[in-house]
Design a protein around this nucleic acid. Sequence first.
DNA 1: TTGTACGCGTTATCAA
DNA 2: TTGATAACGCGTACAA
Lengths: 348, 348
Amino acid sequence: MSDEAVQRPPKRVDMKEVAEAAGVSTATVSRVLSQSGYASPATRARVTEVADRLGYQPDSVARGLRTRRSTTLAILVPDLRNPVTLAFIRGVQHVAQQCGYAVVIADAQRDAEVERRQLALFQSQRVAAVIVAGMMQDPSALSTIARGNSLLVHSPDAAPGSLEGEREAITDAVSDLSRHRHRSVLFISRRAPSANAEPPATLTEVRRRALADASAELGMRADQCTLPTELSGAAASGRLADALGGPGGPRAIICASHRLAPQVLAMLATMGWDIPGQISFLTFGDSEWATAYRPALSVIRLNRYQEARHLTRELLVQLGNVLPLEEAAALPAYVPRDSVGDRPDEAA
Amino acid sequence: MSDEAVQRPPKRVDMKEVAEAAGVSTATVSRVLSQSGYASPATRARVTEVADRLGYQPDSVARGLRTRRSTTLAILVPDLRNPVTLAFIRGVQHVAQQCGYAVVIADAQRDAEVERRQLALFQSQRVAAVIVAGMMQDPSALSTIARGNSLLVHSPDAAPGSLEGEREAITDAVSDLSRHRHRSVLFISRRAPSANAEPPATLTEVRRRALADASAELGMRADQCTLPTELSGAAASGRLADALGGPGGPRAIICASHRLAPQVLAMLATMGWDIPGQISFLTFGDSEWATAYRPALSVIRLNRYQEARHLTRELLVQLGNVLPLEEAAALPAYVPRDSVGDRPDEAA
DNA sequence: TTGTACGCGTTATCAA
DNA sequence: TTGATAACGCGTACAA
């Protein structure tokens, strides 16, 4: 419809032009517009009037070069296919735009090489900070950034209360399963467990261990089922069936990520399992789909939006900005709905 | 470790440093590293070797100032809560990173003022282009951008085959309903129809009209139901019940956006309607949840990812980049699944 | 209170 | 094939 390509030579309004039009020097214009330094009320008024009459826009590229600091935050997303990253991006962007910061974003596509190159691009852009929205493919690449420049690096896992809260929520979830007479849990993820890595290299691994701990405390067994992305539908269903096993097998499922949930649900449906009659189902992450699904899905809510807001606020404060106080971020929580039921063979 | 060492930002490797270490001038370094201009193979090798031994990263801020052009694309998202924008962002980012472009993103939050300020920020950042990922709150704000600089402005509606393809998909969907003996369709959206606006101001409005046209051609009636966000659950259910009316009312529902779908589905479920036994259900946009839902939902697939790729490729070519050819973007299409059934009272 | 002059890191011009 | 030098637009000591 509207495809406007204006190739005309752009006449950007210069600070010099503003200075001449206002009958002052560029230094005065700079002082007035950057709110720092002295200027008489008269000239101040005249300069601002002239500036926005001419439609002057300060060139943040030149400013960045001169001041050696930028007002750009970078987000490195390990995998943009993950829908929860949208909430995270929103949170960062909202706080950033409140302070006049720009937000640049890059998708690492779960590829260490891409990840490395995007970090290098951020560095070359001189961004004020890099926010890593999850576990990196190669965490050592961050040291390059930290060494090479004055960038700050934050990871969402560094958000206070995030992982701790998640542990509590997981315990609540497992307790609920225990209350429904489940004696074992099946954790479904895309990638196989890496028992020896310390610290855990992925968020999924963190959750897996937290789940194992919580289960152990309640005397429950925690089984694993790995469903790699490359697995075909039939193969995946077969593997899931194996994991559920015979009459003694686990009848409580916890999905490692929200992305995985619809696929597992579809499999269970085609295999003829009834939720919550025969299988109890839980997943990490919440959405309106989880609420709309029948039965409504019990979830471990994460609230990545508030998490991102909190994290970005801390970051901007560290960068010397002043922000109004804000209520504490909502912690992760177990949200019981209708997808958890009594284990059938253990029912009274 | 002394305080000074911690506080002081690490020194960036300069082009000057590289020049000195390689025994040449900065001009030569520039020529070698920017791939333009002559240099003897010997010095070329020496310079590149020294450059990455010292870990030199070109400062794109300074480069941007000098060359007066940036390698940053901007995406203005009307409302980042809309999940389909994630696919769009991914598409832009993937093509951009292929050409070494950065992607900066802003959420207009459906607020004309925020929208205006974010555009101004883009302009001040001297981005190479602004991509508007949907209908703007105030389209006239774009003229400011176009006038103020050499930015290109593209709207996703400008993607070839997008809206046209959508019309065809809508016709296919309505035909399917007609085949199932439906004589009227209920279009559910968040905002009320604006019959007089020309051209239509929102994507929803475009779809509404396309649906009206397709229905008219097949001799069907197109009803409207508006469910504003601020409506409470009970009020929304009441309004939906009214729209469905008595025995003669519409029994085919089309959701204007994917975001709306889970909410409407939840309402229908609590109201006791059976899909597809009593109600046929369609929605714009596809996802794994639509497939996992029982019954699996028939959808009008949009493929915003391919659309964004295509659009960004065109943009970068216009900016003077060379890109390898790529298969044509997948067009929107009607994907029939299990949520459309015969109209009960008209069944043979 | 305001103006002058310099430098941020890079590329483009021109002379050697 | 290379090097010296002038900008790009802005912020900021320092002088007036």
